[in-house]
């Protein structure tokens, strides 16, 4: 069985602004990171949310709490 979590970063309101999905994840499979390599003294406004599929157990909790509808859990 292959589990995959698709995150639509255009719909996502931002991991520091909302972050509901990250807090309910029992295996802490979500990561957020700036899209480019960071340099000294730099601030990013947009961070990218991703889910490490090899950590995911497919419980679907993140899909339930996402108010923007940006997360889709695909099991199969």
């Amino acid at each position: 069985m292959k589990i995959d979590v698709e995150v639509d970063n255009d719909r996502c309101v931002g991991s520091f602004e909302c972050g509901n999905c990250m807090r309910v994840c029992p295996t802490a499979a979500f990561r957020t990171y700036p899209p480019e390599v960071r340099k000294k003294g730099q601030i990013y406004d947009k961070w990218v949310l991703t889910c490490l599929s090899f950590e995911c157990i497919g419980c679907g909790k993140c899909e339930e709490v996402c108010q923007a509808g940006a997360i889709k859990v695909v099991v199969g």
Partner: peptide, 28 residues
Amino acid sequence: RQSQLGITEAKYCLCFTYLADYGKEWPD
């Protein structure tokens, strides 16, 4: 906690000596 929970208020990293000062140069 920042990267996995999106929480920035949880202050549990205790830096000391010179590195505490150097951290200022990394605002993000």
